[in-house]
Design a protein around this nucleic acid. Sequence first.
DNA 1: GCATATGGGTCAGACATGTTGACGTATATA
DNA 2: TATATACGTCAACATGTCTGACCCATATGC
Lengths: 175, 175
Amino acid sequence: MSDPYAIDSQDRSASIGASPLFLREDEIRRGAELLYFGYTRLTKSIDEGLAEQGLGRAHHRALYFIARKPDLTVGELLKFLAITKQSLGRVLSELSSRGLIETRTGQVDRRQKLLRLTSNGAALEGELFDALRKGLSRAYTKAGQDSVSGFWRVLEGLIPEEDLPMIAALRDLKG
Amino acid sequence: MSDPYAIDSQDRSASIGASPLFLREDEIRRGAELLYFGYTRLTKSIDEGLAEQGLGRAHHRALYFIARKPDLTVGELLKFLAITKQSLGRVLSELSSRGLIETRTGQVDRRQKLLRLTSNGAALEGELFDALRKGLSRAYTKAGQDSVSGFWRVLEGLIPEEDLPMIAALRDLKG
DNA sequence: GCATATGGGTCAGACATGTTGACGTATATA
DNA sequence: TATATACGTCAACATGTCTGACCCATATGC
């Protein structure tokens, strides 16, 4: 019934024809707020699963990308996370000492370290991924496939052009 | 040209008919990644503006909601931010000592403190808001109005039902 | 009017995550 | 051989969050 966020097409049309680079403040604030609340609510369930293990969000991000792209190098992971290697170092050594990840020396470039999840690491990542699946599946299902496409398209537009190839690389050679 | 994230309708159709509560892993990971990168990239420009003032993201969130709903009480703000009052207390006292916000005693309930931006505070919030406007306007314009509606709809679905009224309250009585 | 609940503030101590800066070591590459 | 790169590490620090324990002022129910 009265969905507080139902899209009011009359409202929308007010901005059509206006300068597309200076949209109505309401549309901007609505997007900013939904993004903030949507993101925080989605990560909340993951945080709870992590807290059980005494791990934090930083650990999850590392686990996620290593799961996503096995044999990722430390340098590649640094680009995804956009943090300093000192920060990442702490996270990786914690994950390693807990037996969640393992490293091998690169074949082509022996300076590189290739990161992989252990079976325990994969199990934990899988559990945490279930929280993402639950949240996003619910949202996708409620919104419908057309909305999902729009969701992706807008989010892509938020990412600077120069970063898109990096993200696209996650989808190629996937394991 | 070859947009790495172009929506492949063939790919999409693969999930139609499958259990909607157990969507293909790829769709979930794509959403999670775009949400992560989109959110971090959007906030990056704001963080830079804040760093110039020696403020952090926590300060911006407070400024944002006070701008959005003048005469917000401390308790309401706590609900939006979902942090402890000790954490919020530090943020608010910093903003207050810099002359960015001011408080008044509630009329109906004298225990409450009503929060407002000063003119300096409003100026700063406006500057920071410009970064949001730039990022979101660009994304909205590139994606088109239909995509924006889908973007909103999916994000709404990520938010638990019980939190939606709180968010809707931001849009009523706005100022 | 009194007991209790609520809105708000505060002190102390802790933890997670990030930062800069400076080095060190092993391996690639021109 | 000289230089650049990939990775690691020590130290010091900033920020934002938390828990726990209190306190005061004001509303509210009986």
